[in-house]
């Protein structure tokens, strides 16, 4: 896969922001334990923690996106990819579950 140089740093920043939020919500989890192939549940996050983490990272990144899109991400890498994708999409057309494509 070819990644353009000005996109990859954004994705890294997004993942870093995700790690920051996770370690704030789950203070017992050290940052170096958070790796992309894990799910939030693997880190001990219960359903309310998962809600708080998704809300927190959307807020931190200034995104107004439906949470429903995050219900099916398989791991943290996929979550960071989705967040990066949302950041690079035009703001005027956010995907809203339930609306027609």
């Amino acid at each position: 896969m070819t990644v353009s140089p000005d996109v990859e740093p954004d994705r890294e920043k997004v993942f870093h922001t995700l790690v920051e939020v996770i370690t704030e919500i789950l203070p017992a989890v050290p940052a170096d334990r958070v790796s992309g192939h894990l799910r939030l549940a693997d880190l001990g996050a219960d359903s309310v923690d998962r809600v708080e983490i998704v809300m927190g990272v959307l807020d931190r990144l200034g995104l107004d996106a439906p949470m429903a899109a995050f219900a099916t991400v398989p791991d943290l890498d996929a979550m960071a990819d989705l967040l990066t994708d949302l950041l690079t999409r035009p703001l005027a057309d956010p995907p809203r579950e339930g609306s027609k494509p």
């Binding site: 359903s47 439906p66 949470m67 429903a68 995050f70 219900a71 099916t72 809203r96 579950e97």
Partner: peptide, 16 residues
């Protein structure tokens, strides 16, 4: 039940 799908839908629907 899919707890994430349900709780996230509850929250999206609340805002909307």
């Amino acid at each position: 039940a899919d707890s994430d799908r349900s709780l996230f839908a509850y929250l999206d629907c609340l805002s909307n």
